[in-house]
Every structure is written in structure tokens, then in C-alpha cells.
Design a protein around this nucleic acid. Sequence first.
DNA 1: CAGTGTGAAGCACTTCACAGCC
DNA 2: GGCTGTGAAGTGCTTCACACTG
Lengths: 208, 208
Amino acid sequence: MKRIAESTVRRLSVYMRYLEELTARGIATTSSDELAEHSGTTPAQVRKDLSFFGSFGKRGLGYSVHELLDRIRRILGLGREWKVVIIGAGKIGSALSTYRGFTTRGFCVVGVYDKDPQKIGRRWDGHLVRDVTVFESDAAELRPDIAVLAIPAENVQSEVDRIVRAGIKAILNFAPGRLQVPAGVTLKTVNMAMELEGLSFALTNRDA
Amino acid sequence: MKRIAESTVRRLSVYMRYLEELTARGIATTSSDELAEHSGTTPAQVRKDLSFFGSFGKRGLGYSVHELLDRIRRILGLGREWKVVIIGAGKIGSALSTYRGFTTRGFCVVGVYDKDPQKIGRRWDGHLVRDVTVFESDAAELRPDIAVLAIPAENVQSEVDRIVRAGIKAILNFAPGRLQVPAGVTLKTVNMAMELEGLSFALTNRDA
DNA sequence: CAGTGTGAAGCACTTCACAGCC
DNA sequence: GGCTGTGAAGTGCTTCACACTG
């Protein structure tokens, strides 16, 4: 398959949400116009995005909500359960694991790790917090798919290295700083400070 | 000024972090090569990004760390304090307000609001949680700059409308769903579920 | 000579426009 | 007739390459 742009993947997620809403409302068909309208994009963009993966519509009629939802779920890999481990038993990880849309889309927390002796052994959102030093051996047995890295700024790279050594191929990172991962490992970083700086820039330079 | 790409603004934030590190290490000059190396981009990109705002370097010598840091801070609007209100006294808002890099860069929490009677009146990270219905009148006096919207999925648009009515021009949103804001208001949405779906897609379609 | 600043070229994503099918 | 699917055109960000300067 040809390389898919990240922006396309994000839009597929948005289309999926609207299709879920249509399903809940019992609506059976939709169109690229309607999808675009509710996803903040254009009909041509919707059709182009979908065209990378196949032809899911019927000319003159539109798309079957049920079928398109099924197809997009499959494309996004949401037809299965993903085992997620959380590194860092803090507020962000907790917010994420209790997020509606986390469990409902097949993401399942199978382990929580920390290096703080104060936290190790305690319960945290129904999970036992384990020592991060046992993570590699745990992972060898558990085979988690995704690691959420939600630790303070220090030594983030060494935790990334640990996660990579454990054989995990996808990391959602909330820690700041530039991180290195080998090819074949996908790293997505969410940096809240940077988002705020973007707002600061917008406020400072508006109308300019 | 010509319109600046969001990607450029994000990179400026990254350059700033490296310049802060150099300052801490007492290093006085740097180059586009070095900035690129530590920011995951190319020297040409660094120079192009900076060129939108002026000529800050010296040919043959590079950039003064001190001067460039000062310039970038000014560009990003970080030379002042920004008053931030948090709507939704939950875990995400709490994680954000205790985030290193939040207070250190001039973002200051001046109010916390919720609609849950259980939370109103309670202390939350040192702030008194107030009823979200008094937000507009509070804002008229307090004049906050940025609102962080960290509430569950229901009625997010009506909260956005309330924030906009209060005269706030920048919103950092953690709630899901498509939101409308009038021109002149900047909305940045962080959707963790969507980030995870991106990882799910990458895991499913790798090597393909 | 070393390293910036920048027009020009390259590339990737978006939009257009229309042929094709229901 | 209506709406999809898609090559072609358009747009905007990135990379190149080199003139320029300390």
C-alpha cells in the first residue's frame, strides 16, 4: 500500500465518530457531503481519503453507514483489543485510562508501572502499580502492544529505551523532550506546554 | 506579517527548549546545524523558520544563544504572563496545572470551574473550585486569556459558547467532538483517543 | 572559510472537475 | 439525475543550492 498521510488517518477517526453517531440514530446511509459537513472538511477530501483504501460507496447513492463504519474500523485496526501498559502512575495516565473512548474502542490497560517506591504496590484505578524495573520481564510474557509514557521530564529516553527493548512497537508519550526510537517503532508525542505556546503565539500575532 | 505555518510555530517551541538547555549549560553561541540536530529537523528548515521573523544570526558565526532565545520567546508571546482558567476540575486539568513547563513559561492558573456540586467549593490543587455558571461574570472582572476545557463528552459545545461569550480568545480543548468557534477565537484540541487510533493504524499497517 | 539568508525547485497534501456508475 | 472515484491542477510546506557576509 502507498504511504498514508497522518492527516488522512486523523480524519478517518473523525469520520468514524460521525458514523457511530449515525448508527446510534438508526440512519442507514450517508454521503461524502454529509461526512464532510460533520467532520470539518470537504466532500472531495472525504472521497479521496477513502479512495486510498478502496471503493466503499455506490455512485448516485452514497455510503452504507454500517459498511463504511466497519471498513474504517478495520482500516484503523480497531477490530481487535489492544493491550496497553501505562508507565508512570500519575494523573495523565489515570485521566487517559478512565477516558470514555479509551475502553470503548478496544484499548485495555494490562499493566501500570512506576519507579516511585511510594506508588509501587499500591492500587491505582483498579490496577496494582508494579516496579518499572520488572517491566521487561513482565512484557516478555504479557506482550503488550502499546505503551503510554506519562512520567516527569527526567530520564525519559532511558524509559523509551526500556520500552523498545521490551519489544513494544507503539508509544504514546506525554513527556517533553526529543526522543529517539528505532525504525519500526511508532512514537506519538503529546506536549501540552507546546500546545499552550501555540495559543500564546496565536494571541500575540492575531490580526498581524 | 505573512501567515505562519503551525508546523513552524511548533518547531520554534522546540528550538526554544534547546536554547534554554544551552543557556543552562552556559553556552553562548549555536548554529542552524546544531539546532536542527537537537530538534529533529534540517538546518535549512531552521533558517527558513527564523527567516519569517527576521535575521537573527551572523553569517559565518551562527546565532547568539541569548539573543535568539529572547527573540523566540518574544515571537511566541512568552515575554508576559498568561492568565489561564481551567473548566473541569478533573485529572487532565490537574495534570496540566502541575506540569513543569506550565508555570515556568508564564502560564498562571487564575480560576478553576466545574458544574459538579460535589466539586464546587472544594480545594483543587490549591484553587477553590467555582460554579461554572458564574464563569462569565468572573471573567468580566478577571479577564483571563486562555481557557483549558477538560470536561467529559456531554454538552461540550455549550461550554465553548460560554467561554466565547466571556470574551476569551484561546481555548485548549481536551474534550472529544467537533466544536465551532467564531473567527478570532483560536481552538486547539488534543484528542487522546485519536492519538491512540493513530498508533493502532500504524501497528496494523506497518510494513504494508 | 564557515555559516546565514533566501529565491527556486521539489514534494506532498488538498481541491477541482468530470467521467463513470447506480 | 445524483453522487462516487480519480487523474489533473493547485497550494503550501520543505529542501536545495548558492550568493553573501562576518
